[in-house]
């Protein structure tokens, strides 16, 4: 780990974005009834230089999965098995102590859920930036402040004014941008955004999504966006992974997953999105409720309770992920794809 001052903006292609490979990851939480899996045997590959969206409802394990990228699952949770390999870093699960601390922030940037509320209310943004620099042994703090100002200006804000502000002086959208700045200012190449647009109104959300896309391209990042809102990722992501009950049930190119979903959960989720056009009478909510740690079935498919294509085999055998033409689906019934709408690509 070097302690040199951060290089100003790392332009592609001299500095290629790293890939991330999650293999057979299982994360468990300790409860009075034993250890329960929040994430079970997840395989997920983030292609270098892409934005991958992970959608799931509450309790689907999406935030736990994101924290695993930093090896930051807090007790009573722990990573039970599996690997998280990041190019240039190796297996993050095996990192510990000082090495791990250095990785967080400098290699993997994380914009926390409700970044609006994750800033220190007693310190100005500038002071928090200097704290971040010192804790990562940045020699040239002036350069760090300069980079921060550039990033803030890039996101359409007056850098000097923002750095002199306390968090209560900034609006929700501004705080979110400060969170993104803090995640990127040490030139992290892998960035995780947890619910980046929740609690923001539509116009601010559109601005933040555009900023995420532009900064991602300019700095050659590998980005993971975690959200419960399909709309929020549909606008920016290249790939989409759908999580349910701690599993990735479908993963592929976003236009393909949305245009021709193959897992019954993805199909139901898309039908359930309130939309501006199309027939209202065709839209319907998914029956039932998402499982919690305690109500996950021990055997068989985790989605079967709410599934309209349920078969006998679903009761006993957990479906394996099958990859075909770049699309991964874990469903016994997905062998017979049901095209919901005509598939068509738009640039």
């Amino acid at each position: 780990m070097t302690t040199s001052s951060p290089a100003p903006g790392c332009p592609a292609p001299s500095c290629p974005a790293p890939g991330v490979r999650i293999r057979d990851l299982t994360v468990v939480y300790k409860t009075p009834v034993g250890e329960l899996p929040a994430v079970s045997g997840v395989d997920l590959t983030l292609t270098p230089g892409t934005i991958t969206g992970v959608v799931g409802e509450s309790g689907s394990g999406k935030s736990t999965l994101a924290l695993s990228l930093l090896n930051a699952v807090q007790p009573p949770g722990r990573i039970k098995s599996g690997t998280v390999e990041i190019d240039g870093l190796g297996d993050v699960v095996k990192l510990g102590g000082e090495q791990l601390r250095q990785t967080r922030g400098r290699k993997v940037g994380y914009v926390f859920q409700a970044a609006q509320n994750s800033l220190n209310p007693l310190k100005t943004i500038g002071k928090q930036l200097l704290d971040l620099g010192r804790s990562h042994e940045v020699d040239d703090l002036r350069a760090l402040v300069r980079d921060a100002k550039d990033l803030l200006a890039r996101m359409g804000m007056d850098g000097a004014r923002v750095l002199d502000s306390h968090q209560h002086e900034l609006s929700g959208g501004m705080r979110q941008r400060v969170g993104i700045m803090l995640a990127l200012v040490l030139n992290a190449q892998v960035v995780v955004l947890d619910e980046p647009t929740t609690a923001l109104d539509m116009i601010t959300q559109a601005t933040i999504l555009r900023i995420i896309r532009e900064v991602h391209e300019e700095r050659a990042l590998t980005t993971l966006v975690i959200t419960h809102d399909v709309g929020a990722v549909a606008e920016v992501a290249d790939d989409l992974a759908v999580m349910y009950g701690g599993r990735v049930v479908e993963h592929g190119r976003i236009t393909e997953v949305l245009g021709a979903p193959r897992h019954p959960y993805t199909q139901g989720l898309i039908r359930a999105i309130p939309r501006l056009s199309g027939d209202i009478s065709l839209a319907r909510a998914l029956p039932g409720r998402p499982p919690t740690l305690g109500t996950l079935p021990a055997a068989g498919c985790v989605f079967r309770e709410r599934c309209d294509k349920r078969m006998e085999i679903c009761e006993t055998v957990e479906p394996q992920s099958v990859t075909l033409d770049g699309r991964t689906v874990a469903c016994h019934a997905a062998g017979r794809p049901l095209p919901l709408v005509k598939r068509k690509e738009y640039a």
Partner: peptide
């Protein structure tokens, strides 16, 4: 306001 609503690419 309406322009700001995300487009579900593919759909």
């Amino acid at each position: 306001l309406l322009s700001a609503i995300p487009v579900l690419h593919g759909l």
